Simulated scan of single mutants.
Amino acid sequence: MQASWKGAVIASSDDIVMVEGNAYFPAEALDPAHVQPSEHRSVCGWKGEAHYYDVVVDGAVNPNAAWFYPEPKDAARQIRGRVAFWKGVTVQ
């Protein structure tokens, strides 16, 4: 699978974990040139605290378009070390 935005591949991997319709890519599949840490956080009752990345392509920034759980709860342990996308990032 690939995650792309504005024609750039943000992540690519065959090792995908699907949770709630979202494809979680291994963190090492991310292209570091296209992500930067965000200060945004949110909380999911069963997964834990989500941290975010901004997706960046050719100077355009898609804020908080990627998320991950650095310390997921036990029920979501399969997504530890993985990143998912939304906000216009195409995953196919």
Score class of each variant (00 low, 15 high):
Val56Leu: 11
Ala11Tyr: 04
Asp14Asn: 14
Val91Met: 06
Gly7Asn: 07
Asp54Phe: 10
Ser38Thr: 07
Trp67Thr: 10
Ala11Ser: 08
Gln36Cys: 03
Ala60Tyr: 06
Gly88Asn: 13
Asp58Leu: 03
Gly88Val: 14
Pro32Met: 11
Val56Thr: 13
Ala84Thr: 05
Ser4Gly: 08
Glu49Leu: 06
Asp15Arg: 03
Lys47Pro: 03
Ala23Gly: 11
Trp86Gly: 10
Glu28Arg: 14
Val9Glu: 01
Ala27Ile: 15
Gly48Glu: 02
Tyr69Met: 04
Trp86Met: 10
Ala3Tyr: 02
Gly59Cys: 05
Val35Met: 05
Val56Glu: 02
Asp74Arg: 07
Lys87Asp: 15
Gln78Cys: 11
Asp15Ser: 11
Ala8Asp: 01
Val17Ala: 11
Gly59Ile: 09
Pro72Ile: 08
Trp67Ala: 09
Asp15Tyr: 02
Ala27Leu: 14
Val9Thr: 15
Pro72Leu: 06
Gln78Pro: 00
Ala50Asp: 06
Asp15Pro: 00
Val17Asp: 05
Val19Glu: 11
Pro63His: 14
Glu28Ile: 09
Asp15Cys: 02
Cys44Trp: 09
Gly45Ala: 14
Ala50Gln: 07
His51Ile: 01
Ala66Thr: 09
Gly48Tyr: 01
Ile79Ala: 04
His51Glu: 15
Ala65Leu: 09
Ile16Leu: 13
Phe68Glu: 01
Phe25Val: 10
Val57Glu: 05
Glu39Trp: 00
Ile10Met: 06
Ser4Phe: 02
Ala11Thr: 05
Thr90Pro: 00
Phe68Ser: 05
Val17Thr: 13
Ala11Ile: 03
Thr90Glu: 15
Ala84His: 01
Lys73Ala: 02
Tyr69Pro: 04
Val89Trp: 07
Asn22Cys: 09
Ile10Trp: 04
Phe85Cys: 04
Gln2Leu: 08
Ala3Lys: 01
Ala66Ser: 12
Arg77Val: 12
Ser13Trp: 04
Pro32Glu: 13
Asn64Glu: 14
